[in-house]
Structure formats: C-alpha cells, structure tokens
C-alpha cells in the first residue's frame, strides 16, 4: 500500500465529513419512513447541514461549577480521535499513514473514547450527564475485550499489524469467510464504541441525553458530529480488516472500498432500528460469558489454521 503526501491530511476530514453527511441523511430517511412520511432526497441531505447551522448559531452554555477544561477537552477529543484513527484507514490502496503498528494505533485511538466520554459527562457538574459518563465506562468494560480479540484474529491471520498487510493477505479469501465470529463481534463493538444505538445508553433518552445532556451550540455539534465520525471510521475499518479492503473484480480498488463501506454502514444503521437500547447491566454478562470465550475460540481457530497451513 502506498502512503500519500502530507497534504492528504487536509483531504481526509473532507472525505470523512462527506461520508458522515451521507450516513446521517440515510438515517434521517429511515426515521422519516418509520414515521410514515416519505422524505425527499433534498430534504434528507439538507437535514445534517441544517443541524450543523442550527448548532453553530446556537448559544453555548456553561453550568454552575462546571469543570470547563475537562468538559471541553472531552468534547473535542471525540472527533479528534476519530480522525486520528482514520489515518491508518486505507481507501483502495492509499492511506494517509500505513503504520507498521496500524492495528494497535487504531485501537489506541478508539480507547481514548473512554476518556473523552467520561470527561464530557463529568465536566458539566450535572447528575444525568455524569451517569451517562459512568455508563460509557461500563460499556467499555463490556465491549473492549471481545473487540481486541476480534482485531487480534485478523492480525494473526495476516501475520502483521500493518493494515495494508492485512488487506494484501485477503487477495484470495476474505477474512470474513473464515472468521465470521470476529467480524460480527467487531461490528457490535464498533457500534458500542461510537455509543450509537442500540448501544446508546450513555446518551440515552431516559437520561435526558446523558453525556450530551448539557451540551449546546458548537460544543454539541463537535461532540455529536464526532460520534458520527467515530461510527463511520470504526465501521469503515471492518472493510480492510475482514472484507478484503479494495479487492474485487472490474472496479478500481477505491470504488470497492467505498461500496463495501457504504453497504456495511447501511446494514448497521438499518439493524439498529430492530433493537431497543441495550443496557450494560444486562449486556455485560453476555459480553463476558459468551462473546469473550467465542472470540478467544475464534482467535485460537485462526491461530491453528495459520500454523498448519
């Protein structure tokens, strides 16, 4: 895989931003359909822009005795880690940085989300916000270990931590074929990491918004936009890890990457609507008793296959 020059650092946010706007528009269309309203294409595409403008002209609020430094840091961290994680994300054969430890870099950036949401929840000195922060830490404890075993499975099969290397190793058979469990667990945890539904308890309606409860104006825009970015990046990473990256017949690799990412993202957004918000007091048990053993077995099976083949 080739690395592109430094100016691509400016292109990356634009590409991801566009992808995020499309994802939000798709979600808005699904919502409108559920409400029995046919939404026109222009209407759904305008919604994300309108929301952004609405929040830009909106007032920023500060609560009494808020810890402003932690609060603002937490809010800004969310989109920043999404962008940093996306540095190793290949589009076709091109990535901003194809690090030798790409998978580890990606995972390290994701884990910063724990700190980000906790700080954003703690900062405003507000009960429901704080409870939202707690909830995300509990959620992290549930999803993170299965997530890591899923990542390890892909890295083991390719024999490298370089994302480009993992894509090359799938020129024949995609990893999803012989590690379906890892793929499914990866997607589950990707959604949980971006705390989007059904894993949206940290910002749940029952907490009046939880970690985002007190955010308004540009702070809300940065935080909520960052969440969407995080979802897009985490889901997009499943393509190089499990779905063969840019490999595919006829079409150029970048187009394959885009198509596969769009398909997975659409599936994730559509499936979300099939489930209510999953609370960690119930899910943690499943994560530890079912998902961790399953992903360990998956990693074991992959390891044995790699050694014997």
């Amino acid at each position: 895989m080739t690395e592109v020059p430094l100016w691509s650092l400016a292109v990356l946010p634009a590409v991801l931003g566009a992808a995020t706007i499309v994802a939000i528009a798709f979600d808005v269309a699904l919502s409108a359909r559920a409400g029995g309203r046919a939404a026109s294409l222009t209407e759904v595409v305008v919604v994300p822009l309108r929301e952004a403008v609405r929040l830009l002209v909106g007032q920023r609020r500060v609560t009494t005795a808020a810890d402003r430094v932690l609060w603002r840091t937490g809010v800004v961290t969310v989109p920043v880690i999404a962008l940093l994680a996306a540095l190793v994300l290949p589009l076709g054969g091109v990535a901003v940085a194809d690090l030798g430890v790409g998978v580890v870099w990606f995972n390290a950036m994701e884990i910063l989300a724990w700190a980000a949401v906790w700080m954003a929840g703690w900062g405003p000195n507000s009960v429901l916000s704080l409870v939202g922060g707690y909830r995300f830490v509990a959620q992290g404890l549930a999803y993170e270990l299965p997530h890591m075993f899923a990542l390890i499975s892909a890295a083991t099969a390719a024999g490298t931590l370089r994302v480009g290397g993992i894509v090359e190793a799938q020129s024949g058979v995609w990893f999803v074929v012989w590690m379906p469990v890892a793929f499914v667990v990866y997607l589950l945890s990707a959604v949980a990491m971006a705390f989007r539904g059904p894993f949206d308890a940290p910002t749940g309606r029952d907490l009046a918004g939880g970690a985002v409860e007190e955010l308004s104006g540009v702070d809300r825009l940065v935080f909520q936009g960052g969440r969407w970015l995080l979802l897009v990046v985490a889901v997009a990473m499943s393509v190089p890890l499990f779905l063969g990256g840019g490999h595919g017949p006829l079409l150029p690799p970048w187009l394959w990457t885009v198509l596969k990412t769009a398909a997975v993202l659409a599936a994730v957004l559509w499936l979300r609507r099939k489930f209510p918000t999953v609370r960690m007091d119930r899910f943690a048990e499943i994560a530890w008793v079912v998902l961790i053993p399953l992903t360990i077995l998956q990693a074991l099976a992959v390891g044995v296959l790699v050694l014997t083949w």
């Binding site: 007032q59 500060v62 009494t64 429901l128 704080l130 918004g209 409860e213």
Partner: peptide, 25 residues
Amino acid sequence: DGDHEDTSAGGGDHGSGHEGGGEQS
C-alpha cells in the same frame, strides 16, 4: 462572551425537576 452562564444550578431549586435535576444538587 457568548457563553451563557447557567446560574440555575442545583443550589436549592428542588422544585425544578428539570430533566430530573440536571445539576448536581
């Protein structure tokens, strides 16, 4: 400065019940 200092706080406004008392009272 464009920041809206929200003085409502939790100090003693128990009647508020805003969103279940948004502030840590």
